[in-house]
Write a protein that binds this DNA or RNA. Structure first.
Length: 907
DNA sequence: GTTAAGACTTGGTCAAACTCCG
DNA sequence: CGGAGTTTGACCAAGTCTTAAC
């Protein structure tokens, strides 16, 4: 039973072979196994969860481990899946089937992206440690077709399916690199590894990711499906927000949550090690240990709501029926697990733990090796002279550099803003010197530089493909060493290893500092954080040196410098999103949100009660919490005067909320990034009244919640549930909405139709979170082009219909627009053509509507930050939708930790 | 209890890369 | 092959939240 351990050795090969896309499928067998695996995993991972992965294996995260195990078992099923698919769903199968063949060829060449990669990595890594390996090939069934990604939402477009195949194969590519190292826990000595990796190129696959695919996963835990559990907030739905909300309402539920019951069932005591659910658990544990022992026991002070949950909470999920099945097995596994765990533990347990404060110290890593950061190249003067009062002006390179920064922005809105110009001129004047000929902005003519720049851009564009490629390779060569770090022996991608180049600050909204010169950052501005025994990165600029070198393993940053615009703030260099460090905290974030599911009822009941509390502070907290819950508002920290004037819940001003009798509220304010939030919502009468009370006697620009700020609010939330803060509600509401919509709206159908359901849910979440994007400049043109095309098709359709009726009477078709005689077709052929044209028109209209519909909605943000990827992965497995249709390459890498979730997982 | 510092997540934009289509 | 359209990923700003300091 080494199960946990890890490794999955050579999957790579296997995978490669297949190349096919991965479809998740679940078969009974599989599921069982999954369960098992999951259990295992859980136990192991969970517990340490934080650390789990890495430590244990040394290499990867827990996932890895599991995966291996699973793989073995799983495989069979997987394979079958392919087959099955056909059997299974009529339509679906077709698509998949089709796809598969096609793809494979491609695949070979490139390899499957994500999966392959992952596997690869894993294998390598594992090696080191390895415990068991089984390899099996997991195969992946058919590849998906990529559908066209269209985004259509609502409509069933059958069409889309067809589209595509393609696309994404390319992704992959990477392969190997991984070099994983063994390392593990303690020993830090990685270097070797590092290098290797670089070779590989790219892969981005995070180690952790590697595994994945399997189907299984923590079944037990996951299971919860409950319908009851989720309770939707009625709220969201209800809103009708003017913005665009759909109105749906789901009121239902909420009422009771099953929590209690379920929870209990699980039986926690035993839980401890064996299966923790994950993060949440870990969190709990930590807390407990740290501060709280007491807590656990005494609930007294804990709010009711909380208490309910206490016990079971996280585990609750696990319990359900499914387990039973598994159980037997599981038990045995557990044992194993445990053992292994122990081992593991030793090594790492302490280590990585996440950041939860409680757990002792927040150590994030044991060894950290990296090469520092790379600086932008020095400025190269172009010598193009700008005009001042119509005459060319000589500028020093430094002066020219700043002038050029402005010149290249001539065609942006920034260049037209007074504040921007003022700040720019102030900083530029400092460089020009007091007596410089250039004094007034209005006498400046930057156009020669602007044109020079446009010209350069054009030249670049005109370069041949080879030239571009060569340039790219050169850059890669230069940057390669900075792209990776080795954390506890595992090679991980670095996120932003390039130091920000100098430029003019582009604040969003009406930022008081826009246009200020963001000066060049030098080594002397940079603090490096690296393992104690690791070699200190060489400073890339000869003759200069780092400001400081630290060895702080309680933080995750590799380097930082003070923001030149706001010296009190820092710019950090972190690992990429695909790293296991980030993955772990991501997972913890979602586990916390899932925990909220068990408390939410109590919390809602509590704040509802406080809407009429005599204590005004309580009332404000209640109403604010309600708004955060129902409208997914952000907390709203206080801001300084030298920042854009935006607000969140706690900083709402009286003028931002208008009461619309009888019980509606209109919100209108600028939120994060100065994105406008404008929504009319129907609220409970007590809330409506309370808002009115908060407004009375205040001026328009006074704070609506004068007794409140985010720290008070969060302190209160923490009393309701451990670790609860305002932002958790956004995550919770987004994920629960996705989960519910998917389970409610997914119908039998082909892959394309299912993807539409997903996109529709995704859009709903984006609307709830107010994720907007600016309408593309060419939107109007694109729309009218679509309309034109549709009209053209309609004209053709009419012509065909005329021809058809003539043909039926035995007459020849009319001449076409050019006066040429058309071919004489049979009525049947014409009918066929008419049907085709009809379908085409329909699809285009759907596309057009979708496009209009989504012109201001950004779907990506919620997918990246708010939707628990396990919901998507499990849904894909349940419905045989290839995960690649939902997640692109980078998302697959980022969510590697979620890939082995059990198909029955529900948020 | 407030403020400040510090660390990390969230978010929109834009240009490059890629896909589609004629 | 070329251009329009779409998607991706880099970029870096702007939030949230915790903890340390007064």
């Amino acid at each position: 039973m080494a199960v946990q351990a890890c490794v999955k050795p050579k999957m790579f090969d296997d995978i490669d072979d297949d190349d096919e896309p991965i479809v998740f499928k679940r078969s009974n067998t599989t599921s069982r196994q999954n369960l098992l695996n999951s259990e295992i995993k859980k136990s192991s991972s969970q517990r340490h969860d934080g650390q789990s992965g890495r430590q244990v294996s040394g290499v990867h995260s827990s996932n890895g481990q599991n995966s291996s195990a699973q793989k073995g078992k799983t495989v069979p099923s997987a394979k079958s899946s392919a087959v099955k698919s056909s059997a299974a769903g009529p339509e679906a199968s077709t698509s998949s089937a089709k796809a598969a063949p096609v793809k494979s060829p491609l695949a070979n060449s490139k390899g499957l992206p994500s999966l392959a990669d992952r596997s690869d990595h894993s294998s390598k890594q594992n090696t080191s440690i390895v415990v068991k390996q089984e390899k099996h090939p997991i195969k992946q069934p058919a590849k998906p077709i990529s559908d066209s990604e269209d985004s259509e939402d609502d409509k069933p477009l059958s069409a889309r399916l067809s589209a595509g195949l393609s696309k994404k194969n390319s992704n992959n590519a990477n392969k190997g690199l991984s070099t994983p190292t063994p390392s593990s826990s303690q020993a830090p000595k990685p270097k070797i590894i590092v290098k290797k990796s670089s070779e590989d190129s790219d892969d981005e696959v995070p180690l952790s990711s590697k595994f994945q695919m399997k189907s299984n996963a923590g079944a037990s835990a996951s299971k919860s499906y409950d319908s009851d559990g989720k309770k939707p907030l009625a709220s969201k739905l209800q809103q009708n927000g003017s913005i665009m909300r759909v109105n749906q309402q789901k009121s239902p539920t909420v009422l009771n949550k099953r929590p209690l019951d379920k929870i209990n069932s699980s039986g926690q005591s035993s839980v401890k090690k064996p299966k923790l659910s994950n993060a949440s658990q870990s969190i709990k544990d930590k807390q407990v240990s740290v501060k709280a022992e007491p807590k656990a026991d005494d609930d007294d002070h804990i709010p009711i709501a909380q208490r309910m949950k206490k016990s079971g909470s996280s585990d609750s999920k696990s319990l359900p029926a499914k387990q039973k099945v598994t159980k037997v097995v599981s038990s045995s596994f557990k044992k194993t697990t445990k053992k292994s765990k122990k081992v593991t533990k030793k090594s790492k347990y302490s280590k990585s733990t996440k950041m939860l404060p409680s757990s002792g110290e927040g150590q994030k890593w044991n060894t950290l090796v990296h090469n520092g950061v790379i600086f932008p190249p020095p400025y190269k003067p172009h010598g193009v002279k700008m005009l001042y009062k119509g005459k060319p002006v000589d500028l020093t390179p430094q002066q020219e550099e700043v002038a050029t920064m402005f010149a290249v922005m001539l065609d942006t809105d920034y260049a037209k803003k007074d504040k921007f110009i003022e700040n720019f001129m102030n900083d530029w004047r400092k460089i020009l010197g007091r007596n410089h000929v250039i004094q007034k902005f209005n006498d400046c003519d930057f156009s020669p530089i602007y044109e020079w720049h446009q010209n350069e851009k054009e030249k670049k564009k005109q370069m041949s493909t080879e030239e571009k490629k060569a340039l790219k390779e050169e850059k890669l060569k230069l940057e390669e060493k900075y792209m990776w770090a080795v954390v506890d022996g595992v090679k991980e991608k670095v996120g932003n290893f390039r130091v920000e180049p100098p430029g003019l600050f582009r604040g969003r909204g009406e930022h008081p500092k826009m246009g200020k010169l963001k000066r060049r950052i030098r080594p002397n501005d940079i603090t490096i954080n690296i393992g104690k025994n690791a070699p200190i990165p060489e400073c890339p600029i000869p003759g200069e040196s780092w400001k400081e070198v630290r060895h702080d393993n309680t933080v995750t940053w590799l380097a930082f410098w003070n923001d030149p615009i706001n010296p009190k703030e820092f710019k950090y260099v972190f690992l990429a999103a695909s790293s296991s460090l980030k993955g772990q905290s991501d997972k913890e974030k979602y586990e916390k949100a899932r925990m909220l599911k068990d408390y939410i009822q109590g919390i809602r009941a509590a704040y509802t009660k406080d809407f009429v509390s005599k204590d005004i502070t309580k009332r404000q907290i209640a109403v604010a919490t309600y708004l955060i819950d129902k409208l997914a508002l952000r907390a709203g920290n206080e801001k300084d005067d030298d920042e854009a004037d935006t607000v969140g819940c706690c900083t709402l001003k009286v003028e931002n909320v208008k009461c619309r009798p009888p019980n509606k509220l209109e919100f209108d304010f600028l939120g994060k990034d100065s994105i406008r939030y404008n929504n009319v919502v129907e609220v409970e009468i007590p809330v409506y009244k309370a808002i009115g009370q908060f407004q009375t006697g205040k001026g328009e620009s006074d704070d609506l919640f004068d007794k409140l700020d985010t720290s008070k609010l969060n302190a209160h939330l923490k009393e309701l549930m451990p670790g609860l803060t305002a932002k958790v509600f956004r995550t919770y509401n987004a994920s629960i909405t996705l989960d519910e919509m998917l389970s409610r709206d997914t119908k039998d159908g082909n892959v394309g139709e299912k993807v539409v359901v997903y996109q529709h849910a995704n859009k709903e979440v984006a609307i709830i979170c107010n994720h907007q994007r600016t309408i593309s400049k060419s939107h109007a043109a694109q729309m009218s082009r679509l309309t034109e095309k549709i009209d053209e098709l309609k004209g053709i359709l009419d012509g065909l219909k005329t021809d058809l009726s003539r043909a039926r009477k035995g007459k020849p078709p009319l001449k076409d627009a050019d006066g040429k005689q058309k071919r004489n077709l049979t009525p049947e052929a014409l009918e066929r053509k008419i049907a085709q044209t009809d379908a085409k028109i329909e699809k285009m209209e759907r596309d057009k509507n979708t496009k209009e519909d989504l012109k201001t909605v950004a779907l990506g943000t919620s997918k990246i930050n708010y939707l628990d990827p396990r919901i998507s992965v499990a849904w894909c497995k349940r419905h045989e939708v290839p995960i690649e249709k939902i997640f692109n390459k980078s998302l697959l890498a980022k969510f590697a930790w979620a890939m082995d979730v059990d198909p029955s997982f529900r948020f």
